[in-house]
């Protein structure tokens, strides 16, 4: 039922909606277009050229930074999902029911407070700041997103599968591996994708918790913007954009599949 169409100005609502889409996509479109700019000056169009992408391809620094970002993202996803699954499965009812709201606190505080707290903790205990501290920070972020998802999905599961498995003689570990994880698979994949994207795009925690040699992609882009950019930044941004989009596409298709399955 089209509810907006009976309003006095039926074209107003679609126009406003279109306006918002334009607002959202014009900057990104301009960014991508100018990544193919032949000129070195970022704002003057001189012709089509893919040379900045080849520049990107041949730059060892950028590969190093990309490697860092991917390592941190995958580690954070792995750690947060493992810990969440173990918590939800092995935790006693009381522990899970009453304590799982403690994980919401990290979502409710501004990220800069998290970052500053982590930096403070690391310097206080002389923990060397580098890739590991970055992984710790991103896992913390990831936990905040993953635990509600896995918890909600676990509640929805039919407990009879678990009980049947235990009755038939499987140990809890086997139940976890062969019964629960397959049942949870869509939720696991969805949370993995969320944590991957969040970790790849995260800036504030990376800003505070990265050492000299460990920069992530957003940090690198920030430094390049700060010190005067060339279209290499555009090319890099476009690549990052594509990476995130692919992951989100996967996530949405999973989500839609899950909705179809439920129907």
């Amino acid at each position: 039922m089209k509810y907006g169409s009976r309003a006095p100005l039926p074209w107003l609502l679609p126009l406003l909606a279109l306006g918002v889409y334009v607002f959202l996509y014009v900057p990104i479109a301009v960014l991508v277009i100018f990544s193919c700019n032949k000129s070195e000056l970022p704002f003057v169009w001189e012709g089509f050229s893919l040379k900045w992408y080849t520049h990107l391809w041949h730059s060892p620094e950028i590969w190093h930074v990309l490697c860092n970002s991917l390592i941190v993202a995958f580690s954070a996803a792995f750690l947060s999902i493992t810990m969440a699954v173990l918590y939800v499965f092995y935790g006693t009812r009381r522990m899970v029911q009453q304590l799982y709201i403690t994980f919401y606190a990290s979502l409710a505080t501004p990220e800069i407070v998290l970052a500053v707290g982590l930096l403070n903790l690391f310097t206080l205990f002389s923990i060397p700041i580098g890739l590991l501290t970055l992984i710790i920070g991103h896992t913390l972020l990831g936990l905040g997103y993953v635990i509600p998802i896995i918890h909600a999905r676990y509640q929805e599961l039919d407990k009879q599968y678990m009980e049947a498995s235990l009755d038939l003689g499987a140990s809890p570990g086997q139940t976890l591996r062969y019964v629960m994880i397959p049942l949870l698979k869509p939720a696991l994949l969805a949370s993995a994708l969320i944590v991957l994207v969040i970790s790849l795009d995260d800036f504030i925690i990376s800003f505070f918790c990265s050492g000299g040699a460990t920069q992530t992609l957003p940090m690198y882009i920030f430094v390049m913007i700060r010190s005067g950019a060339s279209p290499v930044v555009n090319a890099l941004s476009t690549v990052l954009l594509l990476l995130s989009s692919v992951l989100v596409l996967l996530f949405s298709s999973l989500h839609i599949k899950k909705m179809d399955l439920l129907r």
């Binding site: 900057p27 301009v30 960014l31 970022p42 795009d201 800036f203 882009i221 950019a229 954009l241 596409l249």
Partner: peptide, 30 residues
């Protein structure tokens, strides 16, 4: 679903990319 996906997609792009994109729109020659 498709339009919703398009609407949410910018959320998943890095803050840096979004900020940098606006430089191109707001700049003196933008």
């Amino acid at each position: 679903n498709f339009l919703l996906f398009l609407l949410i997609l910018p959320f998943w792009t890095s803050v840096m990319v979004q900020i940098y994109a606006w430089f191109f729109v707001l700049e003196r020659h933008g």
